[in-house]
Amino acid sequence: MSTIVVRVKQKQIAQLIDKGKRLDGRGLNDYREIKIEQGIIEKAEGSARVLLGKTEVMAGVKIETGEPFPDTPNEGVLTVNAELVPLASPTFEPGPPDENSIELARVVDRGIRESKAIDTEKLCIEPGKKVFVVFVDVYVLNHDGNLIDASALAALAALLNTKMTNYEIEDGEVKFKPGYTELPVRKHPIAVTFAKINDKLVVDPWLDEEQIMDARITITVDDDGNICAVQKGGSGYFTPKQIFDAAQIAREKADELRKKLGW
């Protein structure tokens, strides 16, 4: 729901976008400044903090042993969870995950899973019985719009930073030994989110833009320029042409970000 300040800004934001400009000085297809820090939580196997403008998201990776899914007995398991922590925004309430945090987690999960970013076959300990389970927990610390892209970046940065303790099998039991191996990450899926305002699409909407947008679309792109996940959100609509254009721009932006981040 729009706040009063946003309602005042609303007209200005929309009028500027109509002229190809944005209230914070960015072009329609520009991201805010991105800062990534990795390895900030020593007790997690992997961790990262992402600043996307004023949006701040942390992600931590924990690895445990568990059972594989019956339909993929030779593969490790990936689980993504997202918490909209109450200290991040006056609109976040404590309690069990609501539909927004579930959607956020599932969109991030889909990008990593469908691009086959993690080589899950290397996480198998004993086929059908024991595999490594990779838990990615996304923690939103400050909400200033575009949580999906920031969370996807944080999750990937944390996975790239993940070190697994070496192990050997002794009588069917996993025994850990000294030394670390890096988690086998082979793809770098990047989520690019657009907001539709006044029938125009803008990349990386900040909070004020999100509050007045008609609809949102996220397109996740892998290293080869393939589309691996899409999610439309919000109670508006897109024309097919807007979707195709968005996919094209998303592929360019993802490439640009990957180069910038050295991934």
Binding site: R110, R113, E114, S115, I217, D222, G225, N226, I227, C228, A229, V230, Q231, K232, F238, I243, F244, A247, Q248, R251
Partner: peptide, 10 residues
Amino acid sequence: LLQMDGILTQ
């Protein structure tokens, strides 16, 4: 409504 999972070229 538009969702997608899998791998597709443009």
